[in-house]
Design a protein around this nucleic acid. Structure first.
Length: 783
DNA sequence: GCAAATATCCTACCG
DNA sequence: ACCGGTAGGATATTTGCG
């Protein structure tokens, strides 16, 4: 019989020593199904050192190595070159490692490939199965003797076939949030129980599980029981991969409870990319997705939700340090529970915004959704290319850390400082991808210096050569991506934006854009499987040539160029001239350049990559300046923003001077809250590895000493307090400081005034006018 | 011997 | 654990000065 299904998750099992693939899905009737495929055999490729040895080697492998089912000599491509490869098909997964080790020592063997690709991922790719997409397959009903949480189990008989259908099946989703007990520092699962877990499902039903007398055994059992009875397809949390699942596992172990939350009655386990796998369900950590939004500086659930436009205030604001007091106070405990419910509800709402994109990204990349969320951009591109490579008959290179030389990147023009009126920003659309297509820049088209052929492109400055024909791997992939995106946009144009299909299409085109734009960065990444530095270097070189040509054309058309960065030119707005210029660029450069925005007024300092402009709708765009940064305190950023408003909207710098002066005077008299003065910085390496004593590192050490878990990548929020000595001696985690301790002088002199002066010094303003007490002349007298 | 000048470290931004 | 180009704060080290 034909079975249709939407692919949720996939995993591999070994039954009686033989590997099998398990596909978890939903069918068109909304039933949960499991498909078991026993037909796919593990394999790897062997490349001989000398092509003439291929048959001897193949024979040898077949006769001498254990577990080999079959050996095929195939014509493949490797970095575009035709090669003879031996496909070694095995009966089990067990002997792969042994055989690979054995062959590595064989003098006839040059390289072994595909043994580093997971069996279940290879299956998805080889069978052309796409996660979060619809397929049909010939299968027959079967049953398993282990208890499995699905409506039907099938044995796969044929090759699955994808079909186009955009609608999602009726997925059951469960969002959860947990609160842990602790008196000092971070909660420790060895010591501190789980106090509350709250869940919200996609029907809006809320559940709360509470510890009884600080014993969380019952809580865990009830939580597990609820997951089993609600039986979600998707579980979402926030920071669940790193924190909640491991905490739950450790508390379960301590309580002698089995955390069987998956569909086969087993416990969650950590998988690749730090992702926690729950068999048969998608376990999605929304924090992984927050990493894709650089606008969100401190990645709390609340900040992420607020960025997405979810305006929900917490019932009570509870700091981490206050949790145990709320719990121990019988009257306040309900507030803590409400707070947990609020976080679960926020998690659910964030998932409503994100899931379409997640599903479309998984569908495009071709690996399960929970997997794709946890993978960094480089690995997403990697998996996309692996799938394309197999379709093109290309062998997949291994991921090896390559030696690496820095190379020249994009070109940035010196801005013309000051205020300018009516400035148009014109930029090349998808410059790097288009250059890669235009000049066929790809790992397989790169010509080494000794290679002699007739038709090639030569990159400017760096002189790398690339064959014109045939179209390279990157070119084919990029053309396909760009074409697909155009088609989707055409379909979208026919629909209304509130239509569900429109939203899915939008998510799909966004996921395509992400991969397209990451391809250049990927090709220059030394960890990339298809890393050839010359490709990245040539792309950047062509980029520089292109923008320089655009600049000289702009000048030829009488346009005054104010600034430019990589793929953009900022020119004085003149409709007629710009029109002729754009036309000329299309004709003589052959790439499309588009008007992006016309700023009514724009301010440049002498610095590159930093400016602020007044948009036609009255809003202000701030680029690169302190307002756009996460490592300046909120107060300084707000002052700078106010200053920019007065300068750009009203052109009244003197008004801004008054404002800043009043502000600093008031600030010097003390503050009542710390929040606007917290400075957030990331800990980028283990604290003992730092070569200098930096304020944020000293603050981090204080937190660690107080029992907080701080790991690389975490942000530390600190304030500067009054006292003697170096700045780093006065940096204190904000949780450990009181408003009256704040070193207001530091904030005036080193935060507010520099941020304001950055703008106002363009108008000849001196820091003394803003209330600074520090000046070179004065220190000479008094110092 | 000290302060100014310069170098280095560090983070976060732009495209 | 995607690239290079860039700014700017703070600390560390060197230089200049009889």
């Amino acid at each position: 019989m034909k079975v249709n299904f939407w692919l949720l998750d996939v995993n591999q099992e070994v039954v009686d020593g033989l590997p099998e693939i398990r596909i978890w899905g939903l069918n068109e009737n909304g039933k949960r199904i499991l498909l078991i495929d026993k037909n796919f055999k593990p394999y790897f490729y062997v490349l001989p050192k000398k092509e003439e040895d291929v048959n001897i080697l193949a024979e040898k492998i077949k006769s001498e190595l254990p577990d080999v089912v079959n050996v095929l000599v195939e014509e493949k491509k490797y970095f575009g070159k035709l090669v003879k490869a031996i496909k070694v098909i095995l009966k089990t997964l067990e002997k792969i490692e042994y055989n690979v080790k054995n062959l590595t020592k064989n003098p006839l063997v040059k390289e072994i490939l595909h043994d580093d690709l997971r069996y279940s991922s290879l299956y998805l790719i080889e069978q052309e199965l796409k996660p979060c997409g619809w397929h049909k397959v010939e299968a027959e009903k079967t049953s398993l003797n282990q208890p499995i949480k699905v409506d039907e189990v099938y044995l796969v008989k044929g090759k699955p076939e994808a079909y186009e259908k955009l609608d999602l099946p009726p997925l059951k989703l469960l969002a959860f949030s947990a609160i842990y007990h602790t008196k000092i520092g971070s909660p420790n699962p060895d010591r501190d129980p789980i106090l509350v877990i709250s869940t919200v499902n996609n029907n809006g039903e809320t559940k709360v599980f509470e510890a009884k007398n600080s014993n969380d055994k019952g809580l865990i059992e009830e939580f597990v029981g609820y997951i089993q009875s609600f039986d979600p397809d998707v579980i979402v949390g926030y920071n669940s991969n790193r924190v909640d699942w491991s905490y739950l596992l450790q508390r379960s172990k301590k309580n002698g409870v089995k955390l069987s939350v998956d569909r086969i009655g087993e416990e969650p386990h950590t998988s690749v990319y730090g992702h926690v796998s729950v068999v048969g369900r998608l376990n999605i950590d929304l924090l992984d997705l927050a990493e894709d939004f650089p606008e969100v500086k401190v990645k709390t659930l609340e900040n992420f939700a607020s960025f997405l436009g979810i305006k929900e205030e917490p019932p009570t604001k509870i700091l981490e340090t206050e949790i145990h007091r709320y719990w121990e106070d019988k009257e306040k405990r309900s507030l803590l529970v409400k707070f947990c419910e609020y976080r679960a509800m926020l998690t659910k709402k964030v998932s409503d915004f994100m899931l379409n994109f997640v599903f479309q990204l998984a569908n495009l990349i071709g690996i399960p959704a929970d997997f794709v969320c946890a993978a960094a951009v480089g690995f997403r591109v990697d998996w996309y290319l692996i799938r394309k490579a197999l379709a093109f008959g290309e062998l997949v290179p291994k991921r090896v850390e390559q030696s690496f030389y820095p190379y020249k990147g994009g070109m940035v023009l010196e801005p013309k400082p000051g205020l300018h009126e009516d400035i148009a920003v014109l930029d090349f659309s998808a410059m790097y991808p288009n250059l890669m297509v235009k000049y066929n820049l790809s790992p397989d088209t790169y010509l080494k210096p000794e290679e002699k052929i007739e038709e090639f492109y030569v990159a400017p400055e760096v002189n790398h050569r690339f064959r014109k024909e045939p179209p390279g791997f990157y070119k084919q992939v990029l053309l396909e991506l760009m074409e697909a995106r155009k088609n989707i946009q055409k379909q979208m144009a026919k629909l209304k934006s509130e239509n569900q299909i429109y939203r899915i299409l939008d998510a799909r085109q966004r996921s395509i854009k992400v991969i397209t734009n990451a391809t250049y960065g990927y090709c220059g990444w030394r960890g990339a499987r298809w890393f050839v530095s010359e490709v990245a270097e040539a792309t950047a070189a062509w980029g520089r040539k292109t923008i320089m040509e655009a600049i000289s054309l702009a000048k030829k058309h009488g346009l005054e160029v104010i600034y430019g960065d990589t793929d953009s030119v900022f020119v004085k707005y003149d409709e007629k001239k710009i029109e002729r210029f754009l036309e000329d660029v299309r004709g003589s450069i052959g790439l499309e350049i588009r008007p992006e925005v016309v700023y009514r007024r724009i301010l440049f300092t002498e610095a590159k990559k930093r400016y602020a402009g007044l948009l036609p709708d009255g809003r202000i765009d701030v680029v690169g300046l302190e307002v756009a940064r996460g490592d300046w305190c909120e107060a300084a950023k707000q002052v700078q923003e106010k200053v920019l408003e007065m300068v750009l909207r009203e052109v009244k710098p003197e008004k801004a001077v008054e404002y800043v002066k009043n502000y600093t005077e008031k600030l010097r008299s003390g503050v009542s809250e710390l929040e606007p003065f917290i400075i957030w910085k990331t800990i980028t390496k283990p604290v003992r590895d730092y070569q200098v004593k930096a304020p944020h590192v000293e603050a981090a050490k204080k937190l660690i000493r107080a029992g907080w878990n701080l790991t690389v990548g975490d942000k530390v929020g600190y304030v500067i307090v009054k006292g003697e000595g170096k700045l780093y001696e006065k940096a204190v985690p904000y949780l450990m400081a009181k408003p009256e301790q704040l070193d207001t002088n530091y904030y005036v002199e080193n935060q507010i005034i520099p941020a304001a002066l950055r703008i106002l010094e363009m108008f000849g303003v001196k820091k003394e006018q803003l209330g600074s007490l520090k000046s070179k002349d004065l220190t000479r007298f008094f110092g």
